[in-house]
């Protein structure tokens, strides 16, 4: 089968027929058209038809060329392209490309979710690091003070406060240390609670984000439906 066989097989009007067509003359010449203008018009129609046919042939060839490219075959036999199987293979290709799109959507969504959790992890590490540093500073300070107090106590061992003034000074120091430890305990507590709140806040956001990208079970691509993201 050649590429332009599709119009030859049927009895259709051709430019050649226009060229050679003849009409029976009317009995009284004055009731017929003048032959020359009719001929001239027909020749215009003929030229137009030739142009159309050429255009169609070249479009047809273009269609064939593109189809061959899509099917990835250099097989010149056009008949192969018209089997029932080829319609199926064409459908397989369309579905495959839709599947690839769906895969890409899911991969993108997963990458996005991955970035979110990674960021959260990094920020959490930062905050925990800072908290750890803070706690370290507080502890060191408290330890230094405790050591100083212990040293002071040892220095005074066996020598009870001699005067009221000295006794008052020791009491004042003790009161200071108690207050100090109380204040810092409060400080540390508030700080820890704040960190916990921040983490809970993130958790809430993470859950909300997870809900947002949720699609009811059963949703997804079937045939050519647009892909859903889960």
């Amino acid at each position: 089968m050649t590429s332009d066989a599709w119009y030859d097989e049927q009895h259709r009007l051709t430019p050649d027929q226009l060229q050679t067509v003849s009409f029976p003359l009317t009995r009284w010449a004055r009731q017929g058209y003048e032959e020359e203008p009719v001929r001239a018009f027909l020749s215009e129609v003929q030229a137009e038809m030739v142009r159309l046919i050429n255009e169609r042939a070249s479009l047809w060839q273009e269609v064939q060329r593109l189809r061959r490219r899509i099917l990835g075959t250099t097989n010149g036999n056009d008949a192969v392209l018209f089997g029932k199987d080829d319609a199926h293979i064409h459908a397989v290709r369309i579905l495959s490309s839709a599947q690839r799109t769906a895969d890409r959507y899911v991969a993108d969504a997963q990458a996005y979710s991955g970035r979110l959790t990674e960021e959260a992890r990094v920020r959490r590490d930062e905050i925990m690091g800072q908290a750890q540093q803070h706690a370290d500073i507080l502890l060191t300070e408290a330890r230094t003070r405790a050591r100083a107090a212990a040293v002071a106590a040892m220095d005074n061992e066996g020598l009870p406060p001699q005067t009221d003034q000295e006794r008052r000074a020791v009491h004042a120091e003790l009161a200071y240390l108690r207050t100090f430890s109380e204040v810092y305990r409060q400080h540390l507590k508030i700080y820890t609670e704040d960190v916990l709140r921040t983490i809970e806040d993130w958790e809430g956001k993470e859950r909300a984000a997870a809900r947002d990208i949720e699609v009811p079970p059963g949703a997804g691509i079937r045939g050519h439906d647009s892909p859903g993201i889960r």
């Binding site: 459908a91 397989v92 599947q99 959507y105 991969a107 997804g220 889960r230």
Partner: peptide, 24 residues
């Protein structure tokens, strides 16, 4: 495998529901 699953899903659409959205 891409061709295989597309072929399967076209011939037996009811099998699509047994798989996740992303087939990667």
């Amino acid at each position: 495998p891409l061709h295989f699953y597309s072929d399967l899903f076209l011939k037996h659409p009811e099998t699509r529901g047994m798989f996740p959205v992303s087939m990667q």
